[in-house]
Nucleic acid binder design. Structure first.
Lengths: 182, 182
DNA sequence: ACGAGCATATATACGCCCGATATATGCCAC
DNA sequence: GTGGCATATATCGGGCGTATATATGCTCGT
C-alpha cells in the first residue's frame, strides 16, 4: 500500500489538507497501522490532483496559515474502492528493541534494564492512547481495530514485564566487562 | 537502524555472503524483527568493506556459483558494539490487513471473510515457524525473542479468531450492493 | 534424454518514501 | 519582546524495496 492510496482512504471520509493527513496517519486514528511523512504526502497529493482523483481549494482562516484542502472526486472514490479488492501485502513488524535484546549478553545489565523499562513505558503510553481513542471514536470498525491494538500490544507489554529479569540476567552484570566491550 | 548495522550484527556471530545475510533477515532467525533486500545489502557490504569494517574473500564450491564471503574486522566489531549504546528507534507495526478491515462496511462480506481467513492462516504459519525456530535454536536470548513473537502474534491470532464474525457483520451482506460499490 | 523450474549467487536501475530542512504565520508564556 | 510551539506547505538527499538481468547446476517429470 502506497501513500497515494492512504491519502485516498483518508479523503474518502472527509476533506483534509496535507498537514491534517500527516497528523491522522502519525498521531491519530490511523497511526497504529500506517505511517506517512510530509515528504511523501505532499508529492502524492500533487500527483493525485494531476490524475484527477482529488481536487483542491485554498481555505484562509484568521490568524492561521492558508490551508490547501483536498477533496476526493468520484473517480478517486472508484479507484480507491477497486484497490480494496487487491490481494493484501503482509503485515510489517520491525523492532529495533528486539534487535537490541538479541545482543543482551554483550551489554551491561544496567543498559538492558533501562531499555526494557523505556519500552514498557512506551507501550503503556501507546495503550493509554488507544484507550483514549476507543472512547472518542464512534465507528464500530475503528473500535474493532483499536481493540485489536490494545490486545496485541497489551500482550507484548505483559511478556516484557514478566520476562524482563531473564533478559537482564543474560546481560553483563560486571560494569568493568561492559566498559571493556566499548 | 540501517542495513549496514544489520550486516555487522549478522557478521558479528559468523561469516556470511550477501545471499546468506538476506536469507537470515527475511526467512531466518532475524526475519520477524528486521527486513532487508538484495538492493540494500549488496551496496551496504561494499561500503562496509571500503570503510574497513568488513573484509571479503571468494569461496568456490563444486557445482555452485562462487560465493563472496564477508568477515567482520575488529574495527567493525567495535563500531557495532558502540551502536548498541545509541537510543532505540520506535518499533514499527504496519498492517495492510487492519487498513483493509477499516473499510469493511463498504466491502462484500464474502471478501472480508476471505481476507480474515487468509490472515488467520498466515498467522498460523508464522507461529508454526516460530515454534520450529524455538526448537532449533540454542541461544537463550534468541529463545526470549522467539517466545515474545509467539505470544504477541498468538494474541493477534486469537483476537481475529474470536472477533471475526463482528467484522463480517459490518460488511455488505448483499452481493448486489457490493457490486454497486465497485 | 531433455527441459522446466528452482535454489544458489551477485549486482544494479528505478522509484518510493522518510528524515531533515527551509519558509512563513501567529499564539502564548515568561 | 522573544523564544518556543502549533499550524501549514514544500523540497532535497539519501536509504531502501521491487523488479530485473545474469549465471550455474540440481531435481523432477515426461
Amino acid at each position: 500500500m502506497n501513500v497515494r492510496t492512504l491519502c485516498l482512504a483518508i479523503l474518502y471520509d472527509k476533506e483534509a489538507s496535507g498537514y491534517e493527513i500527516r497528523k491522522m496517519s502519525t498521531e491519530g486514528e490511523y497511526s497504529f497501522f500506517v505511517e506517512a511523512s510530509y515528504g511523501s504526502i505532499y508529492p502524492a497529493l500533487q500527483r493525485l490532483e494531476s490524475e484527477g482523483l482529488v481536487t483542491s481549494h485554498i481555505e484562509t482562516h484568521e490568524g492561521r496559515p492558508a490551508k490547501k484542502v483536498y477533496k476526493i472526486t468520484e473517480t478517486g472514490r472508484e479507484t480507491f474502492r477497486n484497490s480494496l479488492f487487491e490481494p493484501l501485502n503482509q503485515d510489517v513488524f520491525r523492532s529495533e528493541f528486539l534487535f537490541f535484546a538479541r545482543f543482551a549478553s554483550i551489554l551491561p545489565a544496567e543498559l538492558v534494564e533501562r531499555r526494557l523499562n523505556e519500552r514498557l513505558a512506551d507501550l503503556d503510553d501507546l495503550i493509554a492512547s488507544f484507550n483514549k481513542m476507543l472512547k472518542e471514536c464512534s465507528r464500530s470498525e475503528d473500535q474493532w481495530l483499536i481493540r485489536f491494538g490494545i490486545e496485541a500490544h497489551g500482550k507484548a507489554r505483559d511478556y516484557i514485564a514478566q520476562h524482563k529479569q531473564e533478559l537482564i540476567a543474560m546481560a553483563q552484570s560486571d560494569p568493568e566487562t561492559s566498559q571493556a566491550a566499548e
